[in-house]
């Protein structure tokens, strides 16, 4: 997953990195012709994914490595889009345990996964070998004849 125009960032598990990562994905998406609302959602998804890694993958320890890869994709059915990979080297959890929670139970925490699943079209967590997790999330650009919020997976 590397080509001209792709974005590759190696980040530290430090909250100070979040703003830079958000602005990097927003700049990338703007350069690739994404609409303003979708750019905001991509930045939000990246932020939430990195925040979860910092909080849960590395238990708040700064200085650990996170890799962010962003590339343009073109699906024959869904058209142009973006694939975002977030790779960490922290704790592993069963992907089936990574789920959003009941929003009627109002409390802080646990909202990040729900937000990611809400704003992206597909979200897949896997264990990355013996160390860390890999999150791959995709979003497709809306066509003029296509209503938003369709075909969530």
């Amino acid at each position: 997953m590397s080509g001209p125009g792709d974005l590759h960032l190696e980040l530290m598990s430090d909250p100070c990195e979040l703003a830079g990562a958000r602005h990097a994905i927003a700049d990338w998406a703007e350069a690739h012709g994404w609409a303003s609302d979708d750019i905001a959602h991509l930045a939000l998804a990246v932020d939430e994914a990195l925040t979860n890694v910092i909080r849960h993958g590395y238990s708040g320890c700064a200085g650990e490595k996170i890799v962010l890869n962003v590339c343009a994709i073109d699906d024959p059915r869904r058209g142009p889009g973006v694939e975002i990979e977030v790779r960490d080297f922290g704790k592993q959890v069963e992907p089936s345990q990574i789920a959003g929670r009941d929003l009627d139970d109002v409390r802080p925490g646990g909202l990040g996964v729900h937000i990611i699943r809400s704003v992206m079209d597909s979200v897949e967590y896997t264990k990355a070998g013996d160390c860390g997790m890999r999150l791959v999330m995709r979003k497709y650009q809306r066509r003029a004849d296509q209503p938003p919020e369709t075909e969530r997976s």
Binding site: R22, A43, L44, D47, E48, T51, V106, R107, P108, G109, L111, G112, I115
Partner: peptide, 13 residues
């Protein structure tokens, strides 16, 4: 100009 889940969680508290 921006808020994420940790921000809204803080406001819930």
């Amino acid at each position: 100009t921006y808020i994420d889940s940790s921000g809204v969680g803080t406001l819930v508290v």
